[in-house]
Amino acid sequence: MKVTLRIFRFNPETDSEPYYKDYEIEADPKDRVIDVLHYIKNEIDGTLTFRRSCLHGICGSDGMRINGKNMLACSILLQDLGYSDANKTYKKPIVIEPLPGMPIIKDLVTDFTDFWKKYEAVKPYLITKSPPPERERLQSPEDVELIMEASKCILCACCTTSCPSTWSNEDYLGPAALLKAYRFIFDSRDEATDERLDIIDTPNGIWRCHTIFHCVQACPKEINITWHISKLKQKLVEREI
């Protein structure tokens, strides 16, 4: 089939403004978006710049906005975007843009500095005060179940950059960092719950979440982030009482 990719381009060394460039190519409905981006870079235009690594949705490098939605370019086939007929020439372009709300470095590459800063702000590591036992700390399968979904997070930033609360307040911790906070607050081995709750119980913390659910829609690992955030809110309310 013939499809057009309309790609956001910006080279800080030569462009004063970003622009969109169209590439009309032959593609297979089963191609991933990352495959067609690679095709363009390899065969047509080597200046096209994007991040990628594992190509199967676990490294979190290639989050981008595809037809208006945040997703991983390696985890979506063209046919799943509606480009499914091998004999057709599609008029509607596939629009590829960088993740929104982040500074642009070049083309689809964005600056993650702020994202990592927020990640680090929630103390993303196990804190224990009692000395470790000789063998493993015990956890029941149910204990682990509580944090399994949260620990799937690949830090791709698809959620945080889809969140309207993040767009309107750049200091808001955002869903990815809050999910990381959850992952430790609900870890039965962690012994810093109060300290952690204090970090998220702040003006730019959890109460900026207005349960808009964009993060849930954007998460390529199908994590129900809003549910996790609501559990944190519940925990904070219980602490107040």
Partner: peptide, 20 residues
């Protein structure tokens, strides 16, 4: 090495006894 990772916070799947 595995016990160390567990102490560092690695979330392992567990059996009914609560062990890794």
């Amino acid at each position: 090495a595995i016990i160390e990772l567990e102490h560092m916070g690695m979330p392992f799947s567990r059996n009914e006894k609560g062990l890794i």
